[in-house]
Design a protein around this nucleic acid. Structure first.
Lengths: 260, 260
DNA sequence: CGCTTCTTTGACGAGCCTCAAACTGAGTGG
DNA sequence: CCACTCAGTTTGAGGCTCGTCAAAGAAGCG
């Protein structure tokens, strides 16, 4: 009896994206249909593939349908810093058309993306105010994740950092419809975690063992389980889920277009 | 014979902002006049004042005319992480209308800001395409600084980190017309530096002494001097100034409005 | 001149890294 | 079906980096 999470939903490839956007605002049927259209124009990538080159000026807007990617920079001597992980349902080149210089997006696992050009067009045309709102709301979310990560790197111990990181993943993946309150897929090597958390592989390993010994987590074959989410959150000083909606209150019914 | 840099230019309070924007795009006379108008509606702040509360939904767009501020978060136990420093010429609530939750902007020194509402209006109206372009170009710049900072925190030693940080300040202040290739004002306490760099005050002090002993820098009474900028850049693995202009090539003459 | 804030120094210990090597598991090919 | 390989995980030993605690100078300010 293997404890494997469903690897992908081949039936409705854009379901994850729809779920994610629905968290932000209620989409009309037409808008939801547009989002599901992401599955029409798919693209496959292999682990290690570069999705967006550093400093790319104008890459195609996409959503991740399955698989994980990351934004990262590699220093001259080989040291790597991962800025953020991109999960199923996350956007590429939508919140920020041009990548900042020296920050590339790489696939970490086998990956599927869906072309979001039609969705973006609809949002920008004014035909899909809900979508426009949802897309605009993605940016502050990303920004918050980035700042959270910065706090981890600058002001938290390896133990706190790792706990915080795992909680973030659990919360994000749950919104995407992957995993639940405790379990979620974790296809990262300890090296990737280290490069994100600013730790050596060896130390990541030791911290994970410590979290296991303390009965807080369980990790095996690509699946993570948070055994005591509340206690973990205490350690990490993780703030409550922090509902989004930072741009404007989506007035019921006909939502105004997002501010310029 | 004190080595003091001019504390402020009372004659033309918005000169720093004009200089900063001119780095990004050539402004028309009308646009430059608009920018200089920032000096008309000024506001003073004292060290410690909160300029923008965390999670503020819609704060007034402003430019810093003089003084330093920072974006920061404070943890429950008092630990503080400074995300970025805001220098004269930098913008507030322009690149990002709403602050991400749990990230506030505080004045670090006595501070003067200028109301940028008129400038923003002009840019958004289409009357000032150059301004629109310049304002849009501020955001990727900020983003790059943030990622640079992240690399420092995650993947550089205290020594490299501090060197990198000082070089960043020198470059930014030079663009703002404060300081030159080697000298610049540095009104930060070592505690502030530590909270930005993820180091303890004591360790910041030791690292600075080490940089001094190595003949790389000089620090006294609010002025920093980089004695060997090139060598310092090598240590920090600081990339060349990286000219900006990431959004679109500002076609000569009538520049199109920034993309939506 | 006394207060406060900031800087500096020392001593000590914990956290994290490096090096090195063994172990595991998933291919892969004979 | 069994080496063999390769990537990833795990463990140990040792040492550097950095934090903490404590206290003594400076420096600005009323």
């Amino acid at each position: 009896m293997t404890t494997r999470l469903p690897p992908r939903s081949p039936a409705r490839p854009a379901e994850t994206v729809a779920r994610r956007l629905s968290e932000l605002v209620a989409l009309s049927d037409a808008e939801a249909a547009l989002v599901r259209g992401l599955g029409e124009r798919r693209e496959r990538h292999l682990p290690g593939d570069m999705l967006v080159a550093k400093g790319a000026l104008d890459s195609r807007p996409r959503f991740i349908l399955s698989g994980w990617a990351c934004r990262q920079r590699i220093l001259a001597d080989g040291r790597r810093q991962i800025f953020s992980f991109l999960l199923p349902g996350d956007s590429i080149s939508i919140t920020r058309r041009s990548q900042p210089e020296v920050c590339a997006i790489h696939a970490l696992t086998a990956l599927e993306t869906g072309d979001a050009q039609l969705v973006v067009n609809a949002a920008e045309s004014g035909r899909a105010p809900g979508l426009a709102y949802a897309l605009a709301a993605l940016e502050p979310q990303e920004q918050t994740l980035l700042l959270d990560h910065m706090v981890r790197l600058g002001r938290q111990s390896a133990y706190e950092r790792t706990a915080h990181f795992l909680i973030e993943l659990q919360r994000r993946l749950k919104v995407a419809g992957l995993g639940d309150e405790r379990r979620f897929p974790l296809p990262l090597t300890q090296e990737m975690m280290g490069d994100a958390l600013g730790l050596s592989v060896v130390h990541v390993n030791r911290i994970l063992q410590q979290l296991r010994r303390d009965g807080l987590i369980e990790l095996r074959s690509g699946v993570a389980i948070l055994l005591q989410p509340e206690q973990l959150a205490d350690i990490a000083e993780a703030r409550p889920p922090t509902r989004s909606a930072p741009i404007a209150t989506p007035s019921a019914g006909r939502t105004g277009a997002a501010p310029a």
